[in-house]
């Protein structure tokens, strides 16, 4: 069976090599994922119920079971640099069906958090951060919608940060506490 290629020679070579190299393993990665995900990922026995339940699996090379294995084996680079990491819709079907009561969805979320610490993150995630920093909303209001709201008897802007912009400063302080806006701007600029 032909393997999917990402046109990233190093990654393609890695994926073609099915052997487990101890030198690729970082035991701290497993610990970090367990801590952030707050689920017992180390209990996975690779039954594949997760992949069988996954709506992304039939239409891509994304395999949640593979990420579970990588987690247990501490394969940090392989996990965080695989573009498939971002194809989970977080529907939690795998979590509901896991016979070991693990939440594979939360393992993916933890890995994405760890990827972000290495500046690996799709643009659209960061654009949401910028929108919220500016207006408090990930999907802000617009003029067409304002007109429609008025016709419905609603205020043109909802009673959120849109009508009370004085609350935006608090949101900015929270995001700045984590340096999130700064990181988002920096990563987007680098692209």
């Amino acid at each position: 069976m032909a393997a999917k290629t990402y046109n990233i020679p190093e990654l393609d070579k890695k994926l073609a090599d099915r052997r487990y190299h101890l030198s690729d393993s970082n035991p701290d990665f497993t610990k970090d994922v367990l801590k952030t995900s707050r689920t017992i990922a180390n209990m996975c026995f690779q039954c594949g119920t997760c992949t069988g339940s996954c709506p992304s699996a039939p239409r891509s090379s994304y395999r949640i079971r593979l990420f579970m294995r990588r987690c247990v084996l501490g394969l940090e680079n392989e996990s965080l640099t695989d573009p498939d990491l971002w194809l989970c819709t977080t529907c939690y079907s795998c979590t509901d069906r896991c016979p070991r009561d693990i939440a594979p969805t939360d393992v993916i979320m933890a890995m994405r958090n760890l990827a972000f610490k290495r500046d690996i993150i799709p643009k659209n995630f960061l654009q949401t951060v910028q929108a919220i920093y500016k207006s408090g909303h990930g999907v802000p209001n617009n003029d067409v919608n304002r007109a429609a709201r008025t016709k419905l008897g609603l205020d043109a802007d909802p009673p959120t940060t849109h009508s009370y912009p004085e609350y935006i400063m608090g949101i900015q302080k929270i995001l700045d506490h984590f340096g999130l806006k700064e990181n988002a701007d920096r990563i987007l600029k680098g692209d």
Partner: peptide, 9 residues
């Protein structure tokens, strides 16, 4: 989006 970036945020 936010859960993927940083759960603490």
């Amino acid at each position: 989006a936010f859960g993927s970036i940083d759960l603490n945020v």
